[in-house]
Simulated scan of single mutants.
Amino acid sequence: MKKLLLLALFCLPLLAFSQTKPYLTLADAQRISDAAEAKAKAEGWNVVIAILDDGGHLISLRKMDGVQIGSVEVAQAKAKSAVFFKRSTKIFEDAMKGEGGSRIATLPNAVGVEGGLPIFKDGIIVGAIGISGVTSAQDGIIAQAGVEAYQ
């Protein structure tokens, strides 16, 4: 009986580490990236597509042919901003245009350029997408196509 009790107590912490909330899988990230890339190709735009998990860690990165290398870091920064603040980077872009908007630039990890969107499942943030390579509005269109492929 004591051994059974000890075994149960030993296994209890292991059960606490099991995944109980939704999360992005690599297959999810690939599906999102595929949709974003298809939208970019349909429009004739070359971009970088970054998919992050809910902790801001990179799951997938695609750099389409011909896109400037600076967009690699920008796409990741947009996704990180979207996941950290649980909102579109367009909100920061719009806020920066208003009175006192320059304060947004002082927030750590806040990117004031459209193209970063959070990804939710059942109301819980599971990650984000960041797009960079064309205009911010075009980046936003591509990001939206990616998010729609997940939902």
Results as ranks from 00 to 15, higher is better:
residue 1 M to D: 11
residue 2 K to G: 01
residue 3 K to P: 00
residue 4 L to V: 08
residue 4 L to S: 09
residue 4 L to F: 08
residue 4 L to G: 08
residue 4 L to C: 02
residue 5 L to M: 10
residue 6 L to Y: 09
residue 6 L to C: 06
residue 7 L to E: 00
residue 7 L to R: 00
residue 7 L to M: 10
residue 10 F to T: 15
residue 10 F to A: 15
residue 11 C to V: 15
residue 12 L to T: 11
residue 12 L to V: 07
residue 14 L to W: 09
residue 14 L to D: 03
residue 16 A to V: 05
residue 17 F to N: 09
residue 20 T to I: 14
residue 21 K to Y: 04
residue 23 Y to Q: 13
residue 24 L to I: 07
residue 25 T to L: 03
residue 28 D to S: 02
residue 29 A to R: 02
residue 29 A to I: 04
residue 29 A to D: 02
residue 30 Q to G: 01
residue 30 Q to E: 14
residue 32 I to Q: 02
residue 32 I to D: 00
residue 33 S to K: 09
residue 35 A to N: 03
residue 35 A to Q: 05
residue 36 A to R: 07
residue 39 K to H: 06
residue 40 A to N: 04
residue 40 A to M: 08
residue 40 A to S: 13
residue 44 G to D: 09
residue 44 G to Q: 08
residue 46 N to K: 15
residue 46 N to W: 08
residue 47 V to S: 06
residue 49 I to N: 05
residue 50 A to Y: 11
residue 51 I to F: 03
residue 51 I to K: 03
residue 53 D to C: 05
residue 53 D to F: 06
residue 54 D to S: 15
residue 54 D to T: 10
residue 56 G to I: 08
residue 58 L to I: 07
residue 58 L to K: 05
residue 59 I to H: 00
residue 60 S to P: 00
residue 61 L to R: 08
residue 62 R to K: 15
residue 63 K to I: 02
residue 64 M to H: 06
residue 65 D to E: 15
residue 70 G to S: 13
residue 70 G to L: 12
residue 71 S to I: 02
residue 72 V to P: 01
residue 73 E to M: 06
residue 74 V to N: 05
residue 74 V to S: 05
residue 74 V to H: 02
residue 74 V to D: 03
residue 75 A to V: 06
residue 75 A to H: 08
residue 77 A to N: 15
residue 80 K to Y: 15
residue 82 A to M: 00
residue 82 A to C: 04
residue 83 V to D: 01
residue 85 F to V: 09
residue 87 R to G: 10
residue 87 R to L: 11
residue 90 K to R: 15
residue 90 K to F: 09
residue 90 K to E: 14
residue 91 I to Q: 13
residue 93 E to M: 12
residue 93 E to F: 06
residue 95 A to D: 09
residue 95 A to C: 03
residue 96 M to F: 08
residue 97 K to T: 11
residue 98 G to F: 00
residue 98 G to W: 01
residue 98 G to P: 05
residue 99 E to H: 09
residue 99 E to R: 09
residue 99 E to C: 00
residue 100 G to H: 01
residue 100 G to L: 00
residue 101 G to C: 05
residue 101 G to P: 12
residue 102 S to G: 15
residue 103 R to Q: 14
residue 103 R to P: 03
residue 105 A to M: 13
residue 106 T to V: 12
residue 106 T to A: 15
residue 107 L to W: 04
residue 108 P to H: 06
residue 109 N to A: 11
residue 111 V to H: 01
residue 111 V to Q: 05
residue 116 G to W: 01
residue 116 G to P: 03
residue 116 G to N: 01
residue 117 L to C: 07
residue 117 L to D: 06
residue 119 I to M: 15
residue 119 I to Y: 04
residue 120 F to Q: 03
residue 121 K to S: 15
residue 129 I to Q: 06
residue 130 G to K: 07
residue 130 G to Y: 10
residue 131 I to Q: 01
residue 132 S to M: 05
residue 134 V to T: 14
residue 137 A to S: 12
residue 138 Q to C: 02
residue 138 Q to K: 13
residue 140 G to D: 12
residue 143 A to C: 06
residue 144 Q to G: 01
residue 144 Q to I: 00
residue 145 A to H: 10
residue 146 G to M: 10
residue 146 G to I: 11
residue 146 G to R: 11
residue 146 G to A: 07
residue 147 V to E: 08
residue 150 Y to C: 10
residue 151 Q to R: 14
residue 151 Q to F: 10
